[in-house]
Amino acid sequence: MALLGTLVNGVCIVAGSMIGLFFSKIPERYKETVMHGIGLAVILIGMQMALSTEAIIVVLLSLLTGAVIGELLHLEEGLNKLGEWLGNKFSSADDDSRVAQGFVTASLVFVIGAMSVVGALDGGLRDNHEVLITKGVIDGFVALVLTTTLGFGVLFSVVPVFLYQGTIALLATQIERWIPEQVLNGMIVELTAVGGLIIVAIGLNLLNITKIRVGNLLPSIVTVGLVYAVYLLF
């Protein structure tokens, strides 16, 4: 079932939001420790994925080309500016804007990220939902925290999450019609490895060890297909 991971992700967001409605304030030390535990788990999953590579040169070149494209397009900066603009736009409205702000803020947090893309592709291509289920746990805790400060608008972010990740997963199920199975299997291995390293970067950021611009690495998910095609020619 290609949409299983997306459904679990959505349920976790709803559950986290509902629980968050019952808390006015969560002690900072609890939030910090929980997020550190999640960060460690994310790193483990990312490393397991990264170690699956059969051609490290493909992974390296994909990350390099993707990083260059991301930096040229200023993806990370653009995403941050979009979030700030939307937040300022809604926060200047009337009291009902609190709901809109919660919705927009949570949607950006949950939708924008490597785990959304990699997890949805993994679910559609290999029926493997581990990444999206892990993302769902993370999103559930984040939704809980956001709801305590932004209100029930966070709950509605489940709609764009489902539409975005569900669309990617369903499209991924049709890729086999266009690409030979042997080539596709090899590309999936390298895509998994590249995505794994990006997920490791997310984990390191969650632990506050680094401040890697993960958004600028997202093009690597696309360039890995091109790099792998060239790799097969040689």
Rank of each mutant, 00 (worst) to 15 (best):
M1T: 14
M1R: 11
A2S: 12
L3N: 10
L4H: 02
L4S: 06
T6I: 03
V8D: 01
N9A: 02
G10M: 05
G10Y: 03
C12W: 04
C12A: 12
C12R: 06
C12L: 12
S17T: 08
M18A: 06
I19L: 03
G20R: 00
L21S: 09
S24N: 11
R29S: 08
R29C: 08
Y30A: 04
K31H: 10
M35E: 02
M35L: 12
H36R: 13
I38T: 05
V42L: 12
L44I: 15
I45F: 14
A50V: 11
T53H: 00
I57H: 05
V58P: 02
L60H: 07
S62D: 06
L64W: 05
G70T: 13
L73G: 01
L79M: 15
N80S: 14
K81N: 13
K81T: 14
K81F: 13
L82P: 14
L82K: 11
S92V: 13
S92A: 15
D95S: 10
R98F: 06
Q101M: 09
G102L: 03
T105S: 05
A106I: 00
A106L: 00
S107C: 05
S107N: 02
V109R: 00
I112L: 11
V118W: 02
G119S: 10
G119R: 09
D122P: 02
G123F: 06
G124T: 06
G124L: 14
L125G: 11
L125W: 11
D127Q: 07
E130A: 11
E130I: 08
V131D: 08
I133N: 08
G136S: 01
V137I: 09
I138V: 03
I138M: 01
A143R: 00
L144N: 01
L144C: 14
V145S: 00
T147Y: 01
T148G: 05
S157D: 01
V159F: 13
V161S: 04
F162D: 10
F162C: 05
Y164K: 08
Q165D: 12
T167K: 11
I168W: 10
I168Q: 04
A172F: 15
T173Q: 11
T173W: 01
Q174E: 13
Q174Y: 01
I175S: 12
E176L: 12
I179F: 09
P180G: 14
Q182D: 09
Q182G: 15
V183C: 05
V183A: 11
N185W: 06
M187A: 15
E190T: 08
E190G: 06
G195Q: 14
G196P: 04
V200I: 03
G203P: 12
G203W: 05
L204G: 06
N205S: 12
I209C: 12
T210R: 04
I212R: 12
R213G: 08
V214Y: 00
V214P: 04
L218I: 13
L218G: 10
T223R: 09
L226Y: 11
Y228S: 10
Y231S: 09
L232T: 06
L232S: 02
